[in-house]
Structure formats: C-alpha cells, structure tokens
Amino acid sequence: MRRSGGALSAVIAAGIVLTLAADVTVLARDRTAGGPRRPGNLVSVPEAPRTPSVAPLTRRYTPHLLVAGTSSLPPQAVERAKGLKGVAGVAVVDAARARVGGRRMGLLGVDPSGFRAFAPEPTAGSDQLWQTVASGGLAVSFEQGRDGALPLGAVVPAGRSADPARIRVGAYASMGIGDVDAVVSRAQARALGLPEGNGLVISAPKADTAALARRLRKILPRGTKVAALAAPKTTGRAPRKSPPRVTGRPDGASGDRSPITGNAMTPTMRTALLEIAGMFGPFPVIGCHRSTGDPQDHGDGRACDFMESTGGRAPSAGAQRHGDQVARYAVANARRLGISYVIWKQHIWNVRGGGWRPMEDRGSITQNHYDHVHISVLR
C-alpha cells in the first residue's frame, strides 16, 4: 500500500517524512543498480503453503497408560500392544522432555486427527485447536501459559539447545495427561528433534492397569517406561473443563491454502511470504504484485498484503489479534527476512528504527491498513 498521503500534522509529518526519505533512497539505489523491476524479473509461488486438514472427532478415549522409549518402538511391538486384551485405543506419539521458550516441559508429537480422541472435553472437540496444531502451532497447558512466559501468538525457540527451531504458541488447553505440558504435530516434532514414534498413549478402561503394564513391558524393548496416568495437576485457576483458548484467525479464511493475487514478487518477498503464510495461514487472500493506481512497492514485487478480512470490512476481534501477531512476527524477524517496513492499523514500523509511528487518516479501513498487514522488503 502507499506510504505517503495528504496533509499531515507537523508532529506526524516529521517521523513519516524521514521514513519515506530513507525508503526512497533504497528504492533509488536498487533502480540505479539494476533498473526498475518488471514482472519478467520476478518469481512466483507455484503453490501456496497447504494447511493440513484434521478429521472430525467421532469418539473419545480416556488415557490410562503412557509408554515412552528411548528410540522408535518396533512396529510389530506396537501392533501386539494394540491387540492386548482390554486395550480399547492406542495413539502412537513422539515423547520427550524438551525445552520450549526457555523452560523444560513434557512434550508430545501427535497426529491431531487421531490424538484428539484422547484429550479431555472440550479440548477434544475444538476443531480450531487441532487445526492450529496441524498447522504447526504449539498447544500448551493452562498451567504453562498462566505466568505470561508463553503468550498466545508468540513465536518461541523450542527443541535442540544448540540449534532450536521456532514455534508459534497457538493455544492454551487442558492436556488431560499428567506430566504432559504441550503437544505439537508429529511433523513439527521432527523439526524440534523429538524421537520418532517412541511413545504410546493407551486407553484400557476395563483392564487391570498394573497387569496390562506388565504385559506391555514383556513385548516392548528393554528399558521402555510404562506409567499409569494420573489426572493432571490443577491450581484452581484453570479448571480441567475450561475451553481451549486459541489464537485468532483471519475472517473469511477457508480451505487449506492462502490464495495469492498478483503472484509475482522478488525472491526475498517470496521467502518472507512462504514463512509467514506457513506460520500464520491460511489467509483469505494475500495480495502482492499490481501495476494499477499508485502501487509503489507492489509494482516492484517488493510488497504483499496479508488480509485479515475482505470486502473492506473491519476485522473481528480474533482477526485483529491474528494481525497483531503477524505484524509482531514480521518486526521481530525483519532483518533476517530482509523486511524494510510493516504497516498495520494506521501505523508504520521501519527497520531503520524509530518504532511504530502513526500515519495520517486516509479515509477507509483498507487505506488505513486495518484489514491487512502490509509487508515490504528491501529488494
């Protein structure tokens, strides 16, 4: 979107003019070096990032035993465990104590479609929560989220201490399994370095738990731990039946992809788009290259608009929270992604410093950037 407009107040003008002057300098330098960018110089996103789908909840299981080994459990042993008398349901998981946001916690990598059946209500019934997990988000217990160290929507380091990955805190929820503080998708567990398929969550409502544990130890690899599950600890502030709290979602987002209009952009913009769409999508639409009107960075393929609502409508409260998270992420990772500036809610942030600064009123929700996060890159 445009970065300058009509008359500004003297106070606002000083900050905005400095920002624009710096941006024009960069643009002029880029054009001097290689000439104005044209669509033929740009690249496209052949396929927008897909958000995995999650199967609906059809039944629920009460978990009774947690199995955890030091390495992947042999498939034949898993099949034998499923066939033991009294076993009603089994979920294969990736289980580890892992560091998330600077603290160690019990973490499971799960298949959201299958594992949701082992979660307590209303966690099991929240389609949005499990879609968030399937999309790469982290669902943490209310207890872990209560002190503010893992705020909803924040992107935190997780996994290996030497080379941690980054993950978005997507939800607070009751886990329903003692010593399990958080869950991620199994794909995300791979990125975090968790052992693959080394655990089982078992429901056996009619079995003698101690006897079943002894039978499991006989068929599983030596050293595999089998523990009876106790109810998770609660403090009274977050009752076990509390509904999940999930990060916001753009209004009108549907399906498992973010449609892209003007699918032509610089390689730097494409890298930023893929990361942001993969972390926060799907969006109802992402608008990039255009040549009509006064496109500025859009005309050079150096900008995209990540829509939080469409049709010129004001975003809902949840979509606004989502936009806040997208804007914060873009700012926090600006230098790594080559982002030059971000516009959101009639404020502009520039990588050269100065923090968020207000912009003039341009007269509409879209022109004032209340329905989309505008992101421009340096080249």
Rank of each mutant, 00 (worst) to 15 (best):
K241S: 13
R166S: 12
T132K: 01
A88T: 05
A10W: 05
A334C: 12
T58G: 02
S161M: 06
T51C: 04
T58S: 07
S126H: 10
Y329M: 06
G262L: 01
M1C: 13
F118Q: 02
D127H: 12
G312T: 12
T132C: 08
Q128G: 04
A55K: 11
T25E: 08
S53E: 14
D30R: 15
D127I: 02
G170C: 06
A264F: 00
D111R: 03
V184R: 07
S53L: 11
G236W: 05
T235M: 07
I276A: 03
L337C: 11
R302A: 12
S258T: 14
L66Y: 04
D179W: 14
T32Q: 08
S376Q: 13
P221W: 03
P244H: 06
A88W: 01
S309G: 05
A332S: 15
D324P: 03
A7S: 11
T366K: 05
I260P: 00
N333M: 13
L274F: 11
L20T: 08
T209Q: 11
V140K: 10
A303T: 13
V326M: 03
L8H: 09
I167V: 15
R2L: 15
R240S: 10
S376H: 12
D361T: 06
R2Y: 11
R313V: 09
L378I: 10
L337T: 09
K345P: 01
P36G: 06
L108P: 06
R190P: 00
A14K: 07
G5M: 10
S364N: 10
W356A: 05
D30N: 15
T235R: 15
M269T: 09
P259H: 02
G363M: 04
G197V: 00
R270H: 00
T235G: 15
A231C: 02
V183Q: 02
P243L: 08
M1W: 04
A319W: 06
R302Q: 12
P75D: 09
Y172F: 13
S141P: 02
V24G: 00
S53Q: 13
A77F: 01
I343F: 11
R362C: 02
A139K: 01
S340Y: 14
P243T: 10
A334S: 14
D324T: 09
M279F: 07
A317S: 08
I16M: 11
P295V: 10
N198L: 06
Y61L: 05
A187G: 07
K233A: 15
R146L: 07
G287Y: 12
S9P: 01
G252Y: 03
R99P: 03
P52E: 06
G40T: 04
G299P: 10
A272H: 08
P358M: 12
L84A: 04
G262F: 00
H374D: 14
W349E: 08
L216N: 04
D361N: 15
L18V: 11
T271G: 10
Q320W: 09
P315S: 10
P195M: 05
G262I: 02
F280H: 04
A187L: 07
I375H: 08
R313M: 04
A162W: 04
L378G: 07
A230T: 14
G89R: 09
G153S: 07
V54Q: 03
D300I: 03
A182Q: 09
V156W: 12
